[in-house]
Simulated scan of single mutants.
Amino acid sequence: MLKEFKEFIARGNVMDLAVGVIVGSAFTAIVKSLVSNIINPLIGIFVGKIDFSSIVFSVGSAHFRVGSFLNSVINFLIISFVIFILVKFVNKFNKDEEKKEEEKEISEEAEYLKEIVALLKEEKEIESTSTPTTKNEKTVSETK
């Protein structure tokens, strides 16, 4: 059972997932800081008060903190938008890199094709100069 556990943990997918979770949590901290320290104050300049945490509804002895929930929703939307922009930027960068690699591959393939065509032309020229021009002459020369 311990051996199976070691194999399970050593698999690439589990390690990739672990790295993803760790990097994701660190990235979340960065994005939260960006939103709370830079983007929310910018929005606050144009909108005014951005903190809704003081909105509370009370029914009997129960207190519903709707304002805190609204703050969380706004933060989620802002964070999601920032991550969307970052992912879009990274995907564009990766796409540009892939295009460059494809162009290199295409140019190498085109180079090889050009060489093949040149060799075929040379071979055709050699055959045309060394072989007879008519079929009958060709078959007579081959039988000799």
Score class of each variant (00 low, 15 high):
Ala18Trp: 04
Glu142Lys: 15
Val35Ala: 05
Ile74Pro: 03
Phe27Val: 01
Phe81Gln: 05
Val23Arg: 05
Glu111Pro: 01
Val47Tyr: 05
Phe57Asn: 02
Asn91His: 13
Ala18Gly: 10
Ser53Val: 00
Asn91Gly: 08
Arg11Tyr: 10
Val31His: 07
Thr133Phe: 11
Phe64Trp: 09
Ile39Pro: 00
Glu142Met: 12
Leu86Ile: 04
Ala10Val: 04
Lys138Ala: 14
Lys124Ile: 01
Ile106Trp: 14
Val140Glu: 14
Lys3Pro: 13
Leu70Ala: 12
Thr133Cys: 15
Glu105Trp: 08
Asn94Arg: 08
Val23Met: 04
Phe84Asp: 03
Lys3Cys: 13
Ser61Arg: 14
Val23Thr: 03
Ala26Ser: 11
Phe57Gln: 01
Phe76Met: 10
Ile55Arg: 06
Ile55Ala: 09
Val90Thr: 03
Glu4Ala: 12
Ser61Gln: 15
Phe52Gly: 01
Lys49Cys: 05
Ile50Gly: 08
Ser141Glu: 09
Ile85Cys: 02
Lys104Asn: 14
Phe89Asn: 13
Phe8Gly: 01
Glu142Cys: 12
Glu137Thr: 02
Lys99Asp: 09
Ile50Pro: 03
Phe81Ile: 09
Val56Thr: 01
Glu97Arg: 10
Ile38Tyr: 10
Val35Lys: 11
Phe46Glu: 02
Phe76Gln: 09
Pro132His: 11
Glu101Thr: 10
Thr131Leu: 14
Glu127Phe: 13
Glu97Val: 01
Ala26Thr: 06
Lys92Trp: 15
Ser61Asp: 09
Ile79Ser: 15
Asp51Lys: 02
Phe89Lys: 05
Pro132Val: 06
Glu123His: 14
Thr129Arg: 15
Thr133Gln: 13
Phe84Met: 06
Val73Ser: 08
Ala29Val: 12
Ala18Gln: 06
Val35Trp: 11
Ile39Lys: 01
Asn40Asp: 11
Glu102Ser: 02
Phe5Met: 15
